[in-house]
Amino acid sequence: MRNKYALGGIMLYVVSTVFVSYLSFRQIINVPTWNALFWIILLFASINGVAKSFIGENRGRLLYLYTLVSPQAVIMSKIIYNSLLLLLISGLCLFVYSLFIGNLVQDMPLFLLTLLLGSFGFSSLLTMVSAIASKTSNNFTLMAILSFPIMMPLLMVLLKLSKNAIDGLENWDLNYLLVLMFINVIIIALSYLLFRYLWRD
């Protein structure tokens, strides 16, 4: 990102959201509440972070990009960049959240794996939705409306996996992990195939 303030802004967004939750909840010891609040904060932070990848992008700059490289390269690089951004955001979110609200996770490797796969999934899905929403006039509202329903399958699997990680179950639920990877692969494949219909105006 060419804009340092945008990155700082999204970091501050995460920290202040967690702090607001801390002020209203203090400590959370109930597992479903902890889990839900964590993912809700991360969800909104991701939407805010990724929305900028197409919305608000200068038209001239996009045009310049399209003359240089193929559309597939554009969407793939945006997805990779956003994945790294979301990994950073989720890492920060986990750190601040544990600091203020408490850390209930018993199986940390599984939780981190969930977070990693979740960041990839969120980034690829939201990058694509952001590309769709950027074509309309009221794009920020539309970003939320379009992304929430199609994010649900991903979110349900993530919630379930992170619940397992918090409870520290003996065996990893491989079915859910496989489904999560499958969803990620599908989203990336669809973005790769469909993006070229989006960018030409």
Partner: peptide, 25 residues
């Protein structure tokens, strides 16, 4: 037509995941 077609394809595939795979788990 073009943009809603893209969203329609995207949405339908996610829907299939939701309706066909998750209930079985």
């Amino acid at each position: 037509a073009r943009i809603s077609a893209v969203y329609n394809i995207f949405a339908y595939v996610m829907l299939i995941v939701f309706l066909m795979i998750l209930p079985r788990l």
